[in-house]
Design a protein around this nucleic acid. Structure first.
Lengths: 100, 100, 100, 100
DNA sequence: ACCGTGGTTAGCTTTC
DNA sequence: GAAAGCTAACCACGGT
């Protein structure tokens, strides 16, 4: 329990100088580790977004209309969401009548 | 093979049979293939977004503040961009003086 | 910048140093008028939100489950949106084939 | 699947639909009545939101910055709340000294 | 090249 | 206090 986080001062053991004593310390390292994990995933996310753009480009190159494609994607997504909503609703009903 | 697919209509010209002749045909299949590729990538993108949210959750669980973390991520990203721009500028200079 | 002041003045009536000299002047009055119009509508909006909450309360009082009701509302809304999306898609198609 | 989809309420017209009224009986009708009241208010709410957006648009068209305006609105609202709280406090004091 | 628009994300409020 | 729904800000894209 001596792990001092920059932002973690629970259970009374917060020293007066805690905010600065961990600068560059273990909490700092932990924070950086979190940040780097996030940044790694963000990069992958951006790469996927790039891939998607490329596909729209390909499709456009063979004559498809990106605007229409986006609408189709949205419609298909809405269908899926609707199904999910209905499933959730069913679960909610079951919970409401004690069938959960 | 004809280049006419459902989305490929020269502006102002609407041939009588062109817009229907490929419905469900090869162009339709091609379109669906594009849509599915995109949807697949969108799913992966969403999964990554989910992972990122989880990491913020982990970090929060050990006392870090997500809001501040997001600011840090933004700052680090800006720094990286700035560095890239500076590097580009440097390259430009180097090219200008024949160091490339 | 000079044509994008904090506020436009009526043509020919603009004093010099508009950004500062119109504090409390005509632009200020105009701004306040906008704010008050918005605030009036926001009040009505808040009142409606209040009414909606009351209806949920009534429904709950006679045994309905608010959570289920919200899901139903959402589903019905999604149906409507889906129809709108489909209509839009049709319009987009028509535009794409020059039928707009 | 069941012929009675819980989420399958009649949309739009056909108020004499027998199916839903059979499913939940009088309660079903009552539920729908609640839902429709809510939806009606939600529509009005959305219309007001639309009006507000338009006003921001007008303001922008004459050179005001919507973002700043939003901040002003927030500030004015906070002031109003503060005044209300102070008024309440005053009432409490008045009650305490028999001035109510 | 700029504006407008839509889609994404973050912050806030509310609910359970 | 966690989770979700709502709202506002941001950003990137296409159109003009």
């Amino acid at each position: 329990m001596s792990d001092h986080n920059v932002a973690n001062f629970p259970q009374g053991a917060a020293p007066e100088d805690a905010e600065t004593s961990d600068v560059g310390g273990v909490a700092g390292k932990r924070l950086i580790a979190f940040l780097e994990r996030i940044e790694r995933l963000e990069e992958e996310k951006a790469a996927l977004a790039e891939d998607i753009k490329e596909i729209y480009g390909e499709a456009k190159a063979v004559g498809f209309d990106a605007k229409i494609m986006r609408k189709l994607i949205r419609l298909r997504k809405m269908d899926a969401q609707k199904r999910n909503e209905e499933d959730e609703l069913l679960e909610t009903y079951k919970a409401a009548i004690g069938m959960s």
